Computed example of a mutant assay.
Amino acid sequence: MADRRLQVFHAVAKQLSFTKAAETLYMTQPAVTFQIKQLEEHFNTRLFDRGHGRISLTPAGELALEYADRILGEYADLEARLAEMTGQMRGPLLVGASITIAEFMLPRVLGEFNALYPNVRARLVVGNSETIENRVAEHSLDLGITEAIEHLPQLQAETCCDDELQVICSPSHPLARESAITPAMLRDHAFIAREPGSGTREVTDNYFRQAGVDPASLKVLMELGSPEALKGVVSTGLGVAIVSRASFHKELQLQHLVAIPLSPRLTRPLSLVTPKEKFRSKLVTSFVDFARRKLQEYAA
């Protein structure tokens, strides 16, 4: 087992928060503080500066984080390789996903994978595509599933399936009876957008540009950080939004929203991303293959 103090330090250094690290590690905050104090006493130096309700890494802390990244990464590889030698599929699996995928696609994938391999401890980290890819690149996640069009050069990306995006609006909205909507038609209506950095925002902005519509010309009423937030605002009749078809099935059944295809249709690839240079364990390889197959089934 890797040194627990080092694991705790790594979590605090990544989160820059004792509270968030405690939640991540399923520990109490006093227990996290105690482990950090022990490690600082062991090295006879401060690893964090504390003040004004915030913490930051000292120069010693920055150095310790560099080594902690390598040590914990090597330990994870050791654990994976030893498990493979004994024919086991076990150990931690750290998966990151952009918000739409995490909320509406991955729960089924993770549940079915865990049913096949009950000794695997999967953990899902949710963020926008930019955040997830950065964490995969820094090796704090084993893999990510994102909606990004362009990927960081240090990542290996493979398309697993395509996802269609459609316009949603309330049943009383003027566009609700249209059979298809062009990008130019959306300039005349209040638009609810995803936040900059999200895969959906990147894809829709590129789509508008290719159609000759400057995204800045849209009447953007607000920018929101999740599909659930977008659907909630749109259902009030305040505006329209563009979201993944996978995200609004329930609302269509309840007739809270109407979905209209774009013309031309808008699809985006969903990509599995892993570090290029990092050893890929049998567990990660198996999950990548499983997730690709399942996501293709769900998209169909």
Rank of each mutant, 00 (worst) to 15 (best):
A2N: 15
L6A: 01
H10N: 00
A13M: 11
L25I: 12
Y26H: 10
I36D: 07
L39S: 08
F43N: 05
F48Q: 09
F48R: 09
D49A: 14
H52N: 12
T58W: 11
A64S: 03
L72K: 00
D77Y: 00
E79Q: 01
A80M: 06
R81N: 09
E84N: 06
Q88D: 03
L93K: 12
L94P: 00
A97Q: 13
T100H: 08
T100P: 04
T100S: 15
A102R: 11
E103N: 14
F104K: 11
F104V: 10
G111M: 10
A115K: 14
P118N: 06
P118R: 13
V120A: 06
R121F: 04
R123T: 10
L124G: 15
E133T: 08
E133F: 07
N134W: 03
R135E: 10
D142C: 10
L143R: 04
I149W: 06
I149K: 05
H151I: 04
L155C: 06
A157T: 10
C161P: 01
E164S: 11
Q166K: 12
Q166C: 05
Q166N: 14
P174F: 14
A176Y: 03
R177Q: 12
S179N: 11
S179R: 07
L186P: 13
D188W: 09
A190N: 13
R209M: 05
Q210Y: 02
S217Q: 10
S217E: 15
K219I: 10
L221G: 05
L224F: 07
S226D: 10
S226M: 14
E228H: 14
V234H: 11
V234P: 11
S235T: 12
S235V: 07
S244C: 08
E251K: 15
Q253L: 06
A259E: 06
A259Y: 04
I260E: 12
I260W: 05
P261L: 02
T267F: 14
K276C: 12
F279L: 00
S281V: 02
V284H: 10
T285I: 01
V288R: 04
K294G: 03
K294P: 00
A299F: 14
A300Q: 07
